[in-house]
């Protein structure tokens, strides 16, 4: 008899190890729990089909994150929700924080993330997830390190500015985006 069906499929171990991190990533990227669930499922379905491409187990997490982002970008383009604006409006990164930040609220933070174009949202989410080095982020986004760094700096400046505002003002101060 064939042996393949007897042992636990390799993909199942990947699900157990990474589904939670992938869901969190998906949630911060798309800002909706339903979409995040769908994206997580889609990611593993794609991974199951492409499992032979995974050369090293140690790279599995980064590989899955890359699949998830590509799936997300695909949806974004299909729904034409992608923001066309750059962060020019945010201005230069201020040398220092103007005043201490108020306590950050999760929904408030998500609202601010949603306002960022994906090219800025992805690096900052990956940065704060702390599991990936800059090298990993560069590989996942397929852009040079300098680009990652400057997007990160601008995204941080944007968050600093947004999170210093009361939540109810958000979305009203930067009209023209979206």
């Amino acid at each position: 008899m064939l042996g393949f069906g007897r042992s636990k499929p390799a993909i199942d171990s990947l699900v157990e190890a990474h589904y939670a991190a992938l869901y969190r990533y998906a949630y911060r990227l798309c800002g909706s729990s339903q979409d995040a669930e769908d994206l997580t499922q889609e990611t593993f379905c794609l991974a199951q089909k492409k499992l032979f491409q995974l050369r090293e187990d140690a790279r599995a997490k980064s590989w899955l994150f890359t699949i998830l982002r590509n799936a997300y970008l695909h949806r974004l383009r299909a729904s034409k929700q992608e923001k066309q604006v750059s962060l020019e409006a945010v201005g230069e990164l201020s040398e220092r924080g103007p005043e201490p930040l108020p306590a950050v609220d999760s929904a408030h933070l998500q609202k601010a993330l949603n306002e960022l174009p994906e090219a800025f949202r992805t690096p900052i989410v990956l940065f704060y997830f702390e599991d990936f080095s800059y090298k990993d982020i560069v590989e996942q986004m397929n852009v040079p390190l300098g680009t990652v760094m400057s997007r990160l700096a601008r995204a941080k400046a944007f968050l600093r500015q947004r999170l210093a505002e009361p939540a109810e003002l958000m979305g009203k101060t930067n009209q023209g985006e979206g």
Partner: peptide, 10 residues
């Protein structure tokens, strides 16, 4: 900023 945002984001 990192201390304020990171834990909430994760």
């Amino acid at each position: 900023l990192d201390d304020a945002v990171g834990p909430v984001l994760r």
